[in-house]
Amino acid sequence: MRTRSAVLVPAAIAALALAGCSDPGDAASGSSSVAASGESDAATPAASVTPFDVTALSEVPEVSSLVPDSLKESGVLRNGASADYAPGEFMDTDGQTPIGYDVDLIKALAVVMGLNEGTTTHAEFPTIIPALGSKFDVGASSFTITAEREEQANMVSYVEVGSAYAVAAGNPKGFDPTDPCGTTLGVQNGTYQQEYAQTLSDQCTADGKEAISIMPLDLQTDVATKVIGGQYDATLADSTVIGYTVELSGGKLEQVGDVIESAPQGIAVAKDDEQLAKAVQAGVQYLMDNGYLTQILGAYGAEDAALTTADLNPAVD
């Protein structure tokens, strides 16, 4: 199980996003009260880090030869990401510029693919995969690889991340991560954690216990604020995010329990574009083999999440 140590990066506290990976098949149903650059009283300003310098890279012929001609002509690798999930993808202090390790990964991938640049544009989670092949070339937005998702897109694995719980400092609600039955749990809409929470709740009722009140919201900044404010007992999110946002919360949040349900995450490519998927796979593998992926992740304290093999559509449960 891979874990990470949290670091502080510049963020206008959309960086407080306690996100998981979105399921593009799910519709949004939660409320949203924080803007994309949304400031939240649940986090504090952070010190800057130095992201990986992509000028250290150059085109790799074995990779660029796989890139589709149409992409070579455009010269731009367009990534769609929901930029409210630190440290993977979130907004810089200007509230407009996406930053994070997925953003840096796309820039690096574009270089080794022989393209002019890799760009990341903010998009809501459910809209990213449907827009592949038209608005976006790839989706690097902390997508957990699932069998359902592999039916919708090609997925190239690059990190493995678990889930973890966070509560308000001191755990005033007495939340027990080993027995969440009867609690109120905040999750991000359409995430793996939302699905897992429902599985846990079903088990609670099967055991004759009270169901979990699952509260999905569109923005995890909102979820965190409600946990801190006492409306929710806890939140369940990606382990990298929990560790990161505990640091950003200025002592208002804390992790409880162990990391659970570790699973690979992947870069999404349109299902009908196998050529681009193989080019992405080759590019990610090159970055892995030469230690660059670890450096990209390490700038955000997430180096332990790096995989060593970039699998295309790996077998998952």
Rank of each mutant, 00 (worst) to 15 (best):
G88D: 08
A224M: 12
Y196W: 12
G139Y: 03
T221Q: 09
Q203D: 15
A36T: 04
A42T: 03
V241I: 15
A35T: 05
S48A: 13
Y196C: 00
E303I: 00
N154R: 04
F125Y: 12
L276Y: 06
T120H: 00
G266C: 11
S163Q: 12
S22V: 06
S201V: 08
D317T: 09
D92A: 11
Q188P: 06
S74T: 15
A211T: 10
L312V: 04
D41G: 11
D53P: 01
A43G: 14
M288I: 14
T183N: 15
A47S: 14
D104C: 04
Q198G: 07
G266R: 05
A147L: 11
T191R: 07
P126E: 08
M155E: 00
D53M: 08
G114C: 02
V259K: 06
Q220C: 15
Y244C: 03
P87Q: 14
P98L: 04
L77A: 09
S22C: 08
S74M: 09
D102F: 09
Q255L: 10
D207K: 12
A168I: 02
T119K: 03
A110C: 09
S74I: 09
L248H: 07
G251R: 14
L236R: 05
V256W: 03
D207C: 10
P61I: 01
I128A: 00
S33A: 11
S65K: 13
L219I: 10
A83Y: 00
Y158D: 04
K173H: 13
A306N: 06
